[in-house]
Design a protein around this nucleic acid. Structure first.
Lengths: 321, 321
DNA sequence: TTGTAGGCGTTATCAG
DNA sequence: CTGATAACGCCTACAA
């Protein structure tokens, strides 16, 4: 493997000059630049990335914390992050946490140890104070509303979005409205819960905990929702489903049980995943890939200023309401 | 940031000794080992990963080539790879290729440039001769039958599996059998095509290209299949669907069009994804996560011997046949 | 069992 | 504009 010193010899210049042309620095006489370029060609030189990293004190690695890689929501986020990482010559370290605090700590620790240059937290189980402890050690970026906190984030205003969707349901005559959620804890879920309760209060509707379906992440979770609803004396007439996969599961299982959608049960999904289109599910579009991109950019931002990027969403009207 | 030299000073030993205890090498007096360990605790020392990499001439990075991160098949593979990488202190570099040869070349190039220690090719568009060119530069591992070639692989015998599934269909009285596939090119697809044609020949059945549905990757692709079948004069009575997501899409759309499954159309899916269970789809179980694990292990195997790991599969009987 | 010293390949500083 | 040279932090012959 030929190195920068070999190149210097071949081109009859110093290593400094070689480094300069390699990094497109100014102040190199065209003549010498040519010589170096030639040497590079002839030797088919490849820089040693490890040496570069050591010298720069950076790893060009960005950590990505997700509970699970194979959930469509996170897969889309990763897709966006991955795409942007590529164009910036960064690589990703995926931390699959399953919401185990222990695994989340691993990721945080790697930031502290400078083994990654930044950490993107797509979703977390750890408490905010814990995260906060690691802020001094490197850029941390979240995918939740962090306004008021000293961390950058790209997020959707889930409170407003939920209110908006709920209003839409009530305008369509629904008064018994519930929702399903991936997990009840978590910042985004808390905002949604708040919105739900505020909405009920404002419309003088009672809060029935049975109308909130927890642990709804995958298509197959739709079955549980339908089973439960089918067995209820006073079931909801409409549901906000925070994930199109689950909505699709509900649509599918409802059919089996002769529950008519939207007549017996209206649905609004979230994310506008491809499955929502094919199954004609009304949904709130969330540009996950774009969010992933922005998260990455915030993570490697040179000026380490804190920024909050709110991403707008929109309702896509289809056949489930 | 305290480094190995600082530790040496603190513990009153040489850097070599520190390095030795850090790497659990033998020949260190218990006394000194203690001293070093103490120094590490007090200084909360963290090794500089870049220096380690430079010194060892390794990156501890393994490349993973997939056409798309957010397809359940590849997501499962990645899950397995990622899990194993974690326990071996490796990180992953994801190459999302969309089957663009150009992107695939990027990955190969990174191997050549030693920017990754090994490359796992989950699926490819590039020709074998191209891949072969890069064999000398580092370990490449494939997820397809490479017996006879000088590369390691973990794979399913798709030929035998297809034959097996087809026999099962014919035993159940089907004579008009088709299949859907992600893409027609690709090693695994070729084996399946061979199996299909051999099967037809053996059973004196005609080959009808209209019975082969290309480009079936996602749930939504099931719609196209159903539409096509609905419009055929002489449609197949059974289908092998090489992906449970697509099978689920077919089941869903068939319902809309009053096509009864399995009466009008029988299905055997592949992979045994969760959606297959919930939708009661008969399927061939393929342990993708386990395959991912093995791929990784082959990639970092110390003795660079070539190994071929065939993974057994099994039929899971459910309601679509 | 221990330590010295050289090397890994770049980048950055600073004097010319 | 150019070039010595000193980091960067760790590993490992080799010598003792």
């Amino acid at each position: 493997m030929t190195n920068i010193r070999d190149l210097a010899k071949m081109a009859g210049v110093s290593v400094t000059t070689v480094s300069r042309v390699l990094n497109n620095h100014p102040y190199v006489k065209e003549e010498k630049r040519k010589a170096v370029l030639d040497a590079i060609k002839q030797s088919n030189y490849q820089p040693n990335i490890n040496a570069v990293h050591l010298s720069m004190g950076k790893t060009f690695l960005v950590g990505v914390m997700v509970p699970s890689i194979d959930h469509p929501y996170f897969a889309s986020l990763i897709k966006g992050i991955s795409h942007e990482a590529l164009t910036h010559n960064y690589n990703l370290v995926l931390f699959q946490t399953n919401y185990k605090e222990e695994r989340e700590l691993d990721a945080l620790q790697m930031l502290k140890q400078k083994q990654i240059d930044a950490l993107i937290i797509c979703s977390r189980a750890s408490s905010w104070p814990l995260i906060e402890e690691f802020l001094p050690y490197g850029p941390i970026v979240l995918c939740e509303d962090t306004r008021g906190k000293k961390v950058s984030s790209t997020f959707v205003d889930h409170y407003q979005t939920f209110i908006y969707a709920l209003e839409y349901l009530i305008q369509n005559g629904h008064r018994k409205v519930g929702y399903s959620i991936g997990r009840k804890t978590g910042t985004n879920s808390k905002f949604r819960e708040m919105a739900y309760k505020d909405f009920l209060k404002k419309n003088h509707l009672p809060f029935d905990p049975a109308y909130v379906f927890d642990n709804c992440l995958y298509f197959e979770d739709g079955e549980r929702v339908v089973d439960t609803i089918a067995s209820m004396d006073d079931p909801p007439s409409a549901l906000l489903v925070t994930n199109d996969d689950v909505a699709a599961g509900i649509v599918t299982c409802a059919r089996n049980r002769q529950i008519s959608i939207p007549n017996d049960l209206a649905l609004i999904g979230f994310n506008n995943q491809p499955i929502a289109k094919i199954m004609d599910i009304t949904t709130i579009e969330i540009p996950l890939v774009e969010i992933g991109r922005k998260l990455f950019l915030q993570g490697i931002a040179e000026n380490q200023e804190i920024s909050y990027q709110e991403i707008p969403v929109r309702l896509i009207k289809r056949g489930t309401i």
